[in-house]
Design a protein around this nucleic acid. Structure first.
Lengths: 246, 246
DNA sequence: TAGTGGTCTAGACCACCCT
DNA sequence: GGGTGGTCTAGACCACTAC
C-alpha cells in the first residue's frame, strides 16, 4: 500500500488516559482535592469503568492518587522521604518514629532462618513495630532475634505485648552493632502488615530486609515493609528530593 | 441469631487463588516450567479469566512468575541481587555491568534540575546506560551531568551515541567523588526504559535516584530504573538472601 | 496460522464510609 | 440509605510469538 506510516503505535487506551489524567492533576487539581467518582470519570472519557480503573491504578502506584473505599479518590501529596539508613533503623537505638506493638516467640520463615543461621525449627523472639511519619503509618516491621543474640534476657511470662517488645529491644541495646547489610525489593502487603499500614492486602510495598551483626554473629534480622505508594526510601547524607519544599 | 462468628472474612477470590497458586508453584513446578494458559487455568479454578489474571499479576509483581505475550507464563527464577551501592554505580568507575548506550544534550525535567541546581532551561549532558546481570537486562539509567561539572570536556560534534557517552563518562573519571545520597521508590517504566528492560510500558520498576557530589557541588544525578519483578537491590557488605544458593 | 497474553466492554453485586 | 471504590463475570478483539 502507498501509506507511509499510518497508525504507528496503537497506544492502549488506559495508557493514554493515564497521561491525560496525570497532566490534569498537575494543572487543574490541588493536593487533597477529590476527583469525580469512577463511573462519572469513565463516562466522561467514553471508556468502560475497568479501563479507567487501570489508569487510576497506575497513578496510585506512582503515588499520584489515593483511593479509599467508601470515600473516593483524592490527589495524593508528594511522597514522603523516609530515612532508611541503618542508624535510623537499628532496633537498639531509641527512635521516636518506631513504635513497638507486640512481641512473641515463633519459628521464623525458612528464608529468615537462613539469614539468622538458626536451625530449621528453632524458636526466636519476634518483635512487631510500626513507623509513622507526619501521623501517617509508613512502615510495619517484623524483627527476628535469636535467643542466643540477646544473652541475659529474662522475660517474665506475664509480660504483655508492648512491654515484652520493649524488653527484647532493651536487650539489643546492650549489644555493639558491628555491621549490617540490606536489600530492597518490591512485594505485596500480607494481611497483617496491610492492616497496620491502613491498606488493603496485596497493596504494593517496599520490603527492606536488614541483617544486623554484633558479637561476630547475626544478632537480628529485620523485615520492614514500607508503603510503596506514599514512601520514598532515602539513604545517605541528604534527602534527594526533599528540597522541593524549599 | 445464635451464630457465633459466621463468615468472618469473605476473602477475595483472587487473593485465595494467589495463595493456592503460590503453594502449587512451590511444590509442583520447577523454575522455567510453563504453566497452562490463562483460559485453561481460569476454567480449572472455575473463575473468570480476569479474576485469574488478577492473581497472576500479583504473583508476577512478587517475582514468582514471568509472563510474555505470545509465549506463555513461566515460573520465574529467584530474584537477582544487584549491588546498588555508590561504589558500584559511580559513573566514573569502569564497571563491566554498565553498558553505555548513547548520549545527548537536553534540558532535564524540573525535578532533576532542582537536584542539579541548574537553571530552569539550562542544557546538560545526558548519558544512557544499561545494566545487565547474567545476560538479562536489569536496569536502565539516565545520567544528567551539568557542563560545569566536567570542565575541559571537549566533544567532537561528530561523535556518535556510545562514543559520546564514553567521552562524558571519561570526563567524570577525572573528578574525585566526595559523597552522594540516594533514594529508592516505586515507579512505572516509561516507554523508553521499558524497551531497554524488555518489558511493557508501565511495568513496575524500582527507581533509584542518586546525587553525586564532587568539587563541592553536585557533579551528576543518576536516575536508574531497575526491573522490580526480577531485581532485589542490595546495599552493604553482603547479599542478604544470596546465601540461598549455598 | 494457531495459540498466547494484553486490552476492553457492559454489566452486576459487595464492602465500606458517611450522614 | 446513598454513594464510593473493590470484586467478579462472560464475553470480544488485538498484538505478538512461534511454527
Amino acid at each position: 500500500m502507498g501509506t507511509t506510516q499510518l497508525e504507528t503505535a496503537p497506544e492502549p487506551k488506559y495508557w493514554h488516559l493515564k497521561t491525560v489524567l496525570s497532566d490534569a492533576l498537575d494543572s487543574e487539581f490541588a493536593v487533597g482535592e477529590i476527583l469525580p467518582n469512577e463511573r462519572d470519570l469513565a463516562a466522561r472519557f467514553g471508556v468502560a469503568r475497568a479501563t479507567l480503573r487501570q489508569a487510576l491504578e497506575q497513578l496510585e502506584l506512582e503515588g499520584r492518587l489515593q483511593r479509599r473505599r467508601g470515600v473516593g479518590t483524592t490527589v495524593a501529596p508528594p511522597r514522603v522521604g523516609v530515612a532508611a539508613d541503618a542508624e535510623h533503623a537499628w532496633p537498639g537505638t531509641t527512635a521516636d518514629d518506631w513504635q513497638p506493638v507486640g512481641s512473641a516467640e515463633a519459628v521464623p520463615p525458612a528464608a529468615v532462618a537462613l539469614l539468622l543461621g538458626t536451625g530449621r525449627d528453632e524458636v526466636v523472639h519476634t518483635v512487631r513495630r510500626t513507623r509513622s511519619s507526619n501521623g501517617q503509618p509508613v512502615a510495619a516491621e517484623l524483627l527476628y532475634v535469636p535467643a542466643a543474640g540477646v544473652p541475659g534476657l529474662d522475660l517474665p511470662e506475664t509480660a504483655s505485648g508492648p512491654a515484652r517488645a520493649l524488653a527484647v529491644l532493651g536487650a539489643l541495646q546492650e549489644l555493639r552493632l558491628e555491621g549490617h547489610d540490606r536489600a530492597v525489593e518490591l512485594g505485596s502487603a500480607r494481611a497483617e502488615d496491610a492492616k497496620q499500614l491502613d491498606r488493603l492486602p496485596g497493596a504494593p510495598v517496599l520490603v527492606v530486609t536488614t541483617r544486623y551483626f554484633a558479637d561476630g554473629r547475626t544478632a537480628a534480622v529485620s523485615v520492614a515493609t514500607y508503603r510503596a505508594d506514599t514512601c520514598r526510601l532515602t539513604f545517605g547524607e541528604g534527602d534527594p528530593v526533599g528540597l522541593l519544599a524549599s
